[in-house]
Design a protein around this nucleic acid. Structure first.
Length: 586
RNA sequence: GGUCCCGUAGCUCAGUUGGAUAGAGCAGCGGACUUCUAAUCCGCAGGUCGCAGGUUCGAAUCCUGCCGGGAUCGCCA
């Protein structure tokens, strides 16, 4: 049950009655109607602007119209009080016993509470990570990886048909460099002293096994070849090894993509899809030969003013037209990315989401312009930029040296603090704000550490079940079943606060999903945990408020139902974030 | 210089897509607690939402222009 959706239908029914009795014209529409929790809880449980939205149509001032509307709402069950406030808000306060229905709804095994159908099964493509296959994943990739994965979970929970996708940039100049780096390791594996890795090549040790394997498979055969002959072989082996490593790194974060699309395969497959895309754009009159002005305000070494094939990106909202073909005849990265997005669209994804790092923010307009052009305005691309992660260790910044290839990898982080802490922390911030990640803090067992705080709430709930089992052995300590609890017994303000929070979950899921903002789920969990801890603490002062009352099984059952409901919603939120809910603290 | 993002309490950040008197957590101040329902709790104080205009019943939120911080600018990926 979605509290706000439920009352929206009641309000709309009241509006219909207003039309029936002539207060409103038949054609009056509720555009911009809101049914939401008021900002200030003192105003009640549900606020609606219905009267304000309809005032003009009714030729009545909003407060007067609100008076008529509330006359009809009063007849509805569950409403304890109706206030008309401010410019014409209608505030509904529900009867305390209403909230028990939320607990019932959460515990109903026939549906998953919070799950939504707003997605209507629409196909949606989430492309995330897409790191170059030239080495292990490091912190920079980690945030986008976790973000994309949680967003995909969230969208699935909200009823979309989600595909998780990874674009493998295995075609550009970078992977050639990577291949040459691997070739050096190959020569090294054959006993040659290669000295220091030259500037510009990949220095990391992770290519050594690739070199060794090449030596094993090819012996000295590659030494006598021209680069044009050995490069494809070495490059392919290096990329394959890098992708294996990346998939392993993703797996330790519990991230599993459905589809990997190779850039090279777009070009070298049965049909050159990049060429086909450029042809198509040319037919549409969107490609021309021309010159680009050099970037202003920044001197560029070796800027080459030349006539080239340009895509009319400016017609679709970009600042400048974009090059498609490099001077060496190869496709620009952008050209193959256009082909890739055209491919996505042709696979039935009208809605696409790309998750990128901050360093790609300058690329956003271009790609969105491309999608507009390629889909005739039918496709929609949302690009989520993940800002930088700053690493700290007990408040001290962690230094990273990229030059030596000695950066902090996903593996390092997960091994040190655990997958769940990494995932939660990466989501405990809006994606477009920078994030501070402190190795010491995320494993701290204190109120300061939101990971702990939320995990602890779930563990506490389960500790109640274990205690309940000791007191009443018929109760299953893992999953106590309580038949027909008398939920009206839950009338303390701290209990009602928890139930209200539970009531907000479905709405929260919907808004987070439509905004493509999984961090809202993390903050919600923190709030819910806060309410639950608050209730727990009240039980310390007021023993009669404790969950388990030996002399009163009926009350205990009602409270256990509430604890169960809380644990379930925490669990549902954790599932969206991809964080494991723990039942016991170590 | 252009573009994009950010600017909210001393600090770190939320803010339900335009709603009412802007919220949390730290830190601060004042109390309580000496405990396994443990890994603290309760209360208080704290604000010109960067600045100035605009849009309207109503703006932290939308539009414009400034100021400050960050990222980015390519035939790289």
């Amino acid at each position: 049950m979605n509290l706000f959706a439920h009352f929206e239908t009641e309000i709309l029914a009241a509006v219909d009655r207003l039309k029936a009795d002539g207060h409103l014209p038949q054609d009056a529409e509720c555009n911009g109607l809101s049914v939401e929790p008021p900002r200030d809880a003192a105003h009640g449980d549900i606020a609606t602007n219905a009267a304000m939205v309809l005032a003009k149509k009714a030729a009545m001032n909003p407060r007067e119209l609100a008076g008529h509307l509330s006359g009809y709402l009063e007849k509805s069950a569950h409403i304890a009080k109706i206030d008309i406030a401010g410019p014409g808000f209608i505030n509904l306060t529900l009867k305390p016993e209403f909230w028990g229905q939320i607990v019932t709804a959460v515990l109903d095994d026939d549906s998953i509470y919070g799950q939504s159908d707003i997605g209507q099964g629409e196909k949606i493509n989430v492309e995330y990570v897409s790191a170059n296959p030239t080495g292990p994943l490091h912190v920079g990739h980690c945030r986008g990886a976790v973000f994309g994965d949680a967003l995909a979970n969230l969208l699935a929970f909200a009823g979309y048909d989600v595909t998780r996708e990874y674009y493998v940039n295995d075609a550009g100049a970078q992977v050639d460099v990577f291949g040459r780096s691997a070739y050096l390791r190959y020569r090294e594996a054959l006993g040659e002293d290669i000295g220091e890795i030259p500037q510009g090549l990949y220095p990391g040790d992770y290519l050594k096994p690739v070199g060794a394997k090449l030596a094993e498979e090819h012996g000295k055969a590659l030494l006598d070849m021209e680069e044009a002959a050995w490069l494809p072989i070495v490059r392919e082996a290096a990329v394959a090894a890098a992708m294996d490593g990346i998939k392993h790194d993703l797996a330790i974060l519990n991230i599993h993509h459905d589809v990997f699309v190779s850039e090279r395969s777009l070009i070298e497959g049965e049909e050159d899809q990049v060429a086909a895309t450029i042809d198509w754009l040319t037919e549409q009159g969107l490609v021309y030969e021309g010159r680009l002005p050099p970037p202003k305000g920044k001197r560029l070494e070796g800027w080459e003013d030349r006539e080239q094939s340009l895509f009319r990106a400016t017609e679709f909202g970009d600042d400048i037209d974009r090059a498609l073909i490099k001077s060496d005849g190869g496709y620009t990265y952008f050209a193959s990315d256009m082909a890739y997005h055209r491919d996505k669209f042709s696979r039935g994804f009208a809605t696409m989401i790309n998750v990128w790092g901050a360093d790609h923010s300058g690329y956003v307009k271009r790609m969105q312009a491309a999608v507009r052009a390629l889909t005739g305005g039918e496709g929609e691309l949302d690009i989520k930029i993940c800002q930088l992660v700053n690493l700290f260790r007990s408040g001290e910044p962690v230094k990273m040296s990229k030059r030596s290839g000695d950066f902090v990898t996903v593996r390092d982080i997960v091994e040190e603090v655990g997958r769940d802490s990494v995932r939660f922390m990466m989501l405990y911030r809006k994606n477009d704000a920078p994030l501070d990640f402190d190795f010491a803090k995320v494993v701290e067992q204190s109120r300061d550490n939101p990971v702990f705080y939320v995990q602890y709430a779930h563990a506490r709930a389960h500790s109640v079940f274990r205690k309940a089992h000791e007191a009443f052995p018929d109760l299953d300590p893992d999953n106590p079943t309580i038949t027909a609890p008398k939920l009206s017994l839950l009338d303390h303000e701290a209990e009602i606060a928890v139930m209200k929070r539970l009531a907000h979950f479905p709405r929260l899921v919907q808004s987070a999903a439509t905004a493509h903002e999984p961090h809202r789920v993390a903050f919600y969990l923190s709030d819910l945990a806060g309410d639950f801890h608050g209730l727990w603490n009240r039980g310390k002062e007021l023993p009669q408020l404790r969950f388990i009352n030996l002399g009163n099984r009926e009350l205990t059952d009602a409270r256990l139902a509430l604890v169960m409901a809380t644990a379930r919603v925490l669990r549902a939120g954790f599932d969206v974030l991809g964080v494991r809910a723990i039942k016991e603290l170590r």
